[in-house]
Amino acid sequence: MAKSKGYPEALEKKLHDQRYYREDSTPDFTKRVEDKSRTIAHMCFQCGTCTGSCPSAPRSTYRIRKFMRRAVLGLESEALNDPDLWLCTTCYSCTDRCPRDIAPTDVIMAMRNMAFTHDIIPVNFLKTVTAIYSSGHGVPNNDVNRAARERLGLTRDPPTTHMYPEYMPGIRKILDHYHLKENADRIIKEREG
């Protein structure tokens, strides 16, 4: 994961890009992505409607079409190791508009799932897991929000686990079943000590 845009690293990346892609290809990757995402990723014809629709694209180096291409070609390690994988907002604009009726969003979700099995995941995503485990929310309520809600005539807390904490054990049970919290804790510890 390139962190600096310094010359040697950028050059290294360029050189990598120039290799024939056949080298890294894992043909069954396409099938595994399709099984997980339940969408016909192999039918992408690279029109670019997805990237053109994507709110993330103009603000980052994230290109959903490129991930679709990697799905088609079976470029597993290139897809799963690209830090851009984590920049999709899951807004589903691409899915709304894809003329081939593919759900690129679900392809991204499938790839993220697969990346996670290799411990490839940014720490902020893991912190979200921790937050959900403790509060039921990815972004828990805070005092600023509470004040805003009051001003709008709403209850200080929304009618979710914030209002009904008795449902928290159920949520934890689901997360535990998938060893999410356990893995999140382990990886955070490895990365942050």
Binding site: C47, G48, T49, C50, G52, A57, R63, K66
Partner: peptide
Amino acid sequence: ADDTLLDRP
């Protein structure tokens, strides 16, 4: 749109 040849929106 996506200028697919330049890979840039």
